[in-house]
Design a binder for these strands. Structure first.
Lengths: 137, 137
DNA sequence: TTTACAAATCGTAATCATTACGATAATATA
DNA sequence: TATATTATCGTAATGATTACGATTTGTAAA
């Protein structure tokens, strides 16, 4: 999802467009991977001195609900990234830099059979490791 | 892994067998699913008044290292279950009762190709929902 | 453009899970 | 049974996340 698209999505649902929100979304738009609330704070601090965690978390969760961001949990910390809207897929996640790579394999089709009377509500398939860049470093 | 087996594993690596450890392992042996540290505390409290979180977490992590328990993170809380030793597989996890069901599908074989120069260190494939019992309740 | 109201933010404190520490107790083995 | 090692207790610290009243800001209608 692109920056402009997500701003419109916000507006269309009655949420206000503030400078902070634009910057938050621009940050994730340029990140191409998972980032934590702390990462975001460090990015915002210089521009907005004294910005509070409340503001960041409130917006992160709002964006998550609206579908602009998606989240996962790594090492006890929530991580956020721009939502992938085009088609269903999963991610390789670099544990050093948080960058992600799309994985188009999804095992859910094969699984349905073996879970006849179970109510499936969601699934998670993630691969962890080091991306080529971080292997060299 | 069965209770007896895990006790022997502990002993063989030089760790002591205490009454608390036996009870912790018996608890997970009978659970057949994921449980949190808090669940465990509630189970232990009546028998061992004043048992501390330090003791529980220390043991949980010890068991994890030794390979008696395996862990996953759900809703910001670590969850533990008896380790499955027979063969590689994944789990359906009931979000109400924590019970698990084995899923023998693993997508990693198909994935290797598309991640040529990525260093894969681990993966997670979990399915969430309600088990038949919890659907009725 | 101004007004008015809902939404957003600040500053800070509370909460929750988890980890850490010094002192004491329990276990296993020679 | 003695002794060294490991486990536990009681409690406090940490780190991520959430909550709250007061204040500010953005938006859409007048």
């Amino acid at each position: 999802m692109k920056l402009q698209e997500s701003l419109e999505k916000l507006k269309s649902q009655g949420y206000k467009t503030t400078a902070k929100r634009k910057d938050i979304l621009a940050y994730f738009d340029g990140a191409d991977g998972y980032r934590t609330a702390k990462d975001l704070l460090q990015h915002m601090e210089p521009t907005y001195k004294g910005i509070s965690f409340d503001t960041l978390y409130r917006n992160l969760h709002l964006f998550d609900e609206v579908g602009i961001l998606e989240t996962t949990e790594l090492n006890g910390e929530k991580h956020f990234r721009i939502s992938c809207t085009h088609h269903h897929h999963h991610h390789f996640i670099c544990k050093d830099c948080g960058k992600t790579k799309e994985i188009d394999v999804c095992p859910m089709n094969e699984v349905q059979n073996s879970l006849g009377n179970y109510a499936i509500e969601g699934h998670k398939f993630e691969i962890y490791g080091l991306c080529p860049v971080c292997q060299d470093a």
